[in-house]
Simulated scan of single mutants.
Amino acid sequence: MTDRALVVVRAGALTTVQDEGRPGHAHLGVPRSGALDGRAAALVNRLVGNPPGAAVLETTVNGCSVRPRSAVTVAVGGAPCPVTVEGRPVAWGAPVRVPAGALLDVGTVVSGVRSYVAVSGGVAVDPVLGSRSTDLLSGLGPPPLTDGTVLPLGTPEALHARVDAAPQPAPPAELVLRVTLGPRDDWFTPAALRAFTSRTYRVSPASNRIGLRTEGPALERARPGELPSEGMVLGAVQVPPDGRPVVFLSDHPTTGGYPVIAVVRAQDLPAAAQATPGTLVRFVGKPAR
């Protein structure tokens, strides 16, 4: 048995393996998946000397604890949180050396939702359709981590970054999502379109890796009935019958029948991954017709 491995001691609320995902398979009904906060995942990989697409751990709210079987370099980023090695505080947002057998604990977030743990060499679970990402919707990739899971690690390719700390954006106090209206904005009344781009919403506790759900003014439709299922893209803002917008994230379905009022710019989606329940949300687009 190789000593290039991590043993999961505490899996936390939801910890998954994620990389850059598996785009390009929507025609097979396969979501893209991948790290919700791709910028944070790429940065922690860079800090430990991994390529940007190496697989990392994505934790949710209360972190996780792991024990490497050999000495590794790790970096934790994304949502700020306390990090310890054998109970001793170590740096967040910087490379840290963890001896073989030592316990690395990634604690509960101080703000934001998802922290990212990169390990030198990357998490080397078997890829599925070119990606090591866990997909909660389709079930592809490794299952969410449980206590006792053993994760193989790859061989480090480069030295870790020589930095004390790397700047990272703070989780949003207010989530501003720039949108392009359409393709189904004509399914909504002019008043609904004005409300969508001028009123504020809040992040719903029901949000997950599939979609960021919102609470706020219901958007009234201009026509009855439902659409035949059609293709969905990352960042699509779908409006279900309750009228509250849902922003599709990495594990979103590839098709859907509710009308899409707008699409969020890809650059704004990492912040959505870190928006806690109750965070104010504004959709910003050109004025409604």
Rank of each mutant, 00 (worst) to 15 (best):
Val9Pro: 12
Gly12Arg: 03
Val17Asn: 10
Gln18Trp: 03
Glu20Thr: 13
Glu20Pro: 01
Leu28Asp: 14
Gly29Ala: 05
Pro31Asp: 11
Arg32Leu: 13
Gly34Ile: 06
Ala35Arg: 11
Leu36His: 13
Asp37Ile: 03
Asp37Leu: 07
Pro52Gly: 06
Ala54Asn: 09
Val56Tyr: 09
Thr59Glu: 08
Thr60Gln: 09
Ser65His: 04
Val66His: 00
Pro68Ala: 08
Arg69Ser: 15
Gly78Trp: 04
Ala79Asn: 11
Cys81Val: 11
Ala91His: 10
Pro95Ser: 03
Gly101Trp: 05
Ala102Glu: 04
Leu104Arg: 01
Leu104Gly: 00
Asp105Phe: 05
Gly107His: 00
Tyr116Phe: 10
Ala118Met: 08
Gly130Thr: 05
Ser138Phe: 08
Leu145Asn: 02
Thr149Leu: 05
Val150Leu: 08
Leu151Pro: 10
Leu153Arg: 06
Pro156Ala: 01
Val163Arg: 10
Ala166Gln: 14
Pro169Trp: 04
Ala170His: 12
Ala170Glu: 15
Leu177Pro: 02
Val179Arg: 05
Asp186Gln: 07
Phe196Lys: 05
Ser204Ile: 08
Pro217Tyr: 02
Pro224Arg: 10
Leu227Asp: 04
Ser229Met: 06
Gly231Asp: 05
Met232Tyr: 09
Val237Phe: 07
Pro240Ala: 12
Pro245Met: 03
Val247Leu: 09
Asp251Gln: 09
Ile261Asp: 02
Ile261Cys: 01
Ile261His: 04
Arg289Ala: 15
